[in-house]
Amino acid sequence: MRVRLLRVVGVATSVYGVAVSVVPDLLAGPSGLVDEGGRVAPATRISLRPLAWRDAASGLALALAPEGPALRTAAYVRIAADLGDAVLLGLTLPDRDRRRKAVAVSVGWGALSVLGLRGGGRGGRDGG
Results as ranks from 00 to 15, higher is better:
residue 61 A to N: 09
residue 59 G to Q: 13
residue 10 G to A: 04
residue 20 V to W: 03
residue 96 R to T: 13
residue 46 I to V: 14
residue 53 W to P: 05
residue 115 L to Y: 01
residue 68 G to F: 03
residue 84 G to K: 03
residue 75 A to W: 06
residue 118 R to I: 03
residue 88 L to I: 12
residue 78 R to I: 05
residue 76 Y to A: 13
residue 51 L to A: 14
residue 44 T to H: 04
residue 3 V to R: 13
residue 21 S to F: 12
residue 63 A to Q: 12
residue 127 G to F: 05
residue 98 R to G: 06
residue 79 I to G: 04
residue 32 G to C: 07
residue 4 R to T: 14
residue 7 R to I: 09
residue 49 R to D: 11
residue 83 L to A: 12
residue 13 T to S: 14
residue 57 A to N: 03
residue 86 A to Y: 05
residue 24 P to M: 04
residue 55 D to E: 15
residue 83 L to F: 13
residue 108 G to M: 01
residue 92 T to Y: 03
residue 26 L to T: 10
residue 6 L to F: 09
residue 80 A to E: 07
residue 14 S to P: 08
residue 61 A to I: 07
residue 84 G to V: 03
residue 71 L to S: 14
residue 27 L to S: 08
residue 38 G to R: 03
residue 94 P to Q: 07
residue 51 L to K: 07
residue 54 R to T: 15
residue 7 R to P: 09
residue 93 L to M: 03
residue 95 D to P: 02
residue 39 R to L: 10
residue 67 E to Y: 07
residue 67 E to K: 08
residue 102 A to I: 02
residue 104 A to G: 00
residue 22 V to I: 15
residue 67 E to I: 13
residue 125 R to V: 09
residue 7 R to Y: 08
residue 65 A to M: 09
residue 30 P to E: 08
residue 56 A to K: 08
residue 15 V to H: 03
residue 33 L to K: 10
residue 39 R to E: 14
residue 71 L to R: 15
residue 93 L to D: 02
residue 107 V to T: 01
residue 100 R to Y: 00
